[in-house]
């Protein structure tokens, strides 16, 4: 029984990782179509570096992710503070709209934002993409920060008020320093969501501003592209290296 269990778990992991490992292996395969092993090569990696389109798209992806995560962290934190600190007209609607973002299927949010941008005559590109990414990251920051705030002793805020702090100082001197870990977690989550998004980006950006998932999409739709294997390998390894690095760093710190 134990053996069956181990075998089953192993098979699931094989299912999860086989496609990725095949991809990584193909990225070093000299054969263009990847049907046969024709020896080691790094030429697909060189091709990425030489491809301005891909490099541009990669940089754009990072710019959008960084800006969207940062702005979502700022606005989301303010949103969480609003919900935590104050009673105001429309608070229920406020919560409802956050819920709508989280529950809406990507495709529904994508077309609704597209409709908005078209109606307003906003050019589909950098700006529309950034605004959209901020929007879908927002509720995740709000929830992360809000759950940290609700863990506080509410007397801390009252103490600050009692000692003469106005709303701004309560936020800047008390709430923000204490909520910082949650704000950073929200930023990280937003960054991941932004990099990972395909559907919303597909609708709200145009040829003037291409990001990596869309570039890859248009490449692979037209057939096998070995440099995509190389790119995928890199994109897979970056977070893995990053996380294992921080994991060992944390372990080191503990011991």
């Amino acid at each position: 029984m134990r053996r069956v269990k181990t075998l089953y778990v192993a098979l699931i992991y094989l299912f999860l990782y086989l496609p990725i490992f095949v991809l990584i292996a193909s990225s070093f395969n000299a054969s263009k179509y990847g049907t046969r092993w024709e020896g080691w090569t790094l030429k697909w990696y060189y091709q990425i570096i030489d491809s301005p389109l891909l490099m541009h798209a990669a940089i754009n992806t990072l710019i959008i992710a960084f800006l969207a995560a940062t702005l979502a962290a700022v606005i989301g934190t303010l949103g969480a503070v609003s919900l935590y600190r104050w009673r105001f007209a429309g608070k229920k609607a406020f919560e409802g709209l956050l819920f709508v973002i989280m529950m809406s299927p990507d495709i529904v949010m994508a077309i609704s934002l597209l409709a908005l941008f078209i109606a307003l005559g906003i050019h589909l590109g950098f700006m529309s993409l950034l605004l959209s990414h901020i929007t879908f990251c927002l509720p995740f920051v709000v929830i992360t920060v809000y759950s940290r705030l609700s863990g506080f002793d509410s007397a801390l805020i009252e103490a600050a008020r009692d000692l003469g702090a106005g709303e701004w100082h309560v936020f800047y001197r008390i709430i923000l320093p204490l909520a910082m870990p949650a704000v950073l977690a929200g930023w990280l989550l937003s960054f991941t969501l932004s990099v990972d998004d395909v559907i919303v980006s597909f609708f709200v950006t145009g040829p003037s501003f291409e990001i990596l998932p869309l570039r890859i999409y248009s490449m692979v739709r037209l057939g096998v592209k070995p440099e995509v294997n190389a790119l995928a390998t890199i994109l897979f390894l970056i977070p893995v290296v990053f996380v294992s690095f921080s994991y060992f760093l944390l372990k080191e710190k503990k011991s």
Binding site: D153, A155, L156, R161, D162, A165, G166, P177
Partner: peptide, 20 residues
């Protein structure tokens, strides 16, 4: 008057010291 505009101060049951 808001709490920050009154000349009174309070010592809380939980002390409510700013942990940071």
């Amino acid at each position: 008057l808001a709490p920050n505009q009154r000349h009174v101060n309070i010592v809380f049951q939980s002390f409510a010291l700013f942990p940071h």
